[in-house]
């Protein structure tokens, strides 16, 4: 270890090393290493043993054999459950990101336009719920949505319906839960972006003949693109792998990859398939993001040259 640090020290100058090194180390410990382990397990085969999978590198007599099993991945493709779980997770994530954006944008816009005092109060209100445990907040929605819960009792109380509506354990409940839980992650980056918007740019647009809605489309919206992308990523990525919300609020027919992963790991104890599920999920998310990122930096370069 000392040798490694010494080697790194030689390559990188001191203070810079700290600045780059800390997040680098963080990523290494909590992303790269677990990822490598999961990747390794995904290429092994399930065993009833401890650990419950076969090693991929073996030393037999005088031969070192590396045995990569693609069975788990083939299995994912062959079994319709996984493909449809991926698709429905992505679908749910995209739809709820869009809903978060539709609700979050006007809220972030309104907060950014407030006087500083009101602004702080509203930001506080956005952040405050996350001071309670995520689990408790989602559980609270069970109480609100269930058949003899808050909504149904209220609707029946005022005589609007005679029988309780089935909301809990439907896709609607999943969307409600996801949008509720992830809205702050959409609002905050959007707010941070919109609050920087120079009001004089809008005045300049009005001055040049743009009506307020035209100025919004042509100035505010494109200038808040970075906030829209950041907020959408912060919502989309965790929602794809979301487990708690579909488990507690969804029904048996809400298929999400997080639930499948949980089942493979804890119920079937099939670590290799569970790992393959996780790796594919990551790839599904990372590849489009990287393509997008690559595209954007290229665009930026071409603008600068």
């Amino acid at each position: 270890m000392n040798a490694v640090i010494g080697w790194l020290r030689q390559r990188l100058p001191g203070p810079r090393w700290l600045v780059i090194g800390v997040p680098f180390l963080w990523m290494l410990l909590f992303f790269a290493v677990p990822f490598a382990i999961a990747l390794k397990i995904s290429f092994s085969q399930a065993l009833i043993a401890m650990p419950p999978y076969s090693p991929i590198v073996e030393w037999n007599d005088t031969a070192l054999t590396l045995k990569l099993s693609f069975n788990n991945y083939l299995y994912l493709i062959r079994d319709n459950v996984y493909v449809s779980a991926y698709l429905s997770s992505l679908g749910i994530a995209v739809v709820s990101t869009a809903i978060c954006l539709l609700i979050g944008y006007p809220m972030a816009y309104a907060i950014a336009r407030m006087s500083p005092a009101n602004r702080n109060i509203c930001l506080m209100l956005v952040i405050l719920p996350s001071w309670t445990s995520f689990l408790i907040r989602i559980y609270a929605w069970v109480g609100i949505l269930k058949n003899n819960g808050l909504i149904n009792n209220m609707l029946m109380g005022i005589g609007l319906i005679d029988e309780p509506l089935q909301i809990l354990h439907t896709p609607l409940a999943v969307y409600v839960g996801i949008v509720y839980a992830y809205l702050p992650f959409m609002i905050l980056p959007l707010y941070a972006n919109l609050v920087k918007l120079d009001h004089r740019l809008l005045e300049a647009a009005y001055d040049l003949g743009a009506k307020p809605w035209q100025a919004f489309i042509k100035i505010t919206l494109p200038l808040s693109r970075a906030g829209i992308i950041a907020g959408s990523m912060l919502v989309l990525i965790p929602v794809v792998g979301e487990f708690v919300i579909p488990e507690m609020l969804g029904g048996p027919d809400t298929l999400m990859i997080g639930k499948v992963l949980w089942g493979e790991f804890f119920n079937n104890r099939d670590w290799p398939v569970a790992s393959a599920v996780a790796i594919v999920m990551l790839a599904l998310l990372l590849i489009p993001i990287m393509i997008f990122h690559h595209h954007q930096s290229k665009e930026l370069e071409s603008k600068l040259s």
């Binding site: 120079d198 004089r200 740019l201 005045e203 300049a204 647009a205 001055d207 040049l208 100035i219 200038l223």
Partner: peptide, 11 residues
Amino acid sequence: NMMFQSYALFP
């Protein structure tokens, strides 16, 4: 039409 003090060009 107005020319703004800080120019307010659309970035």
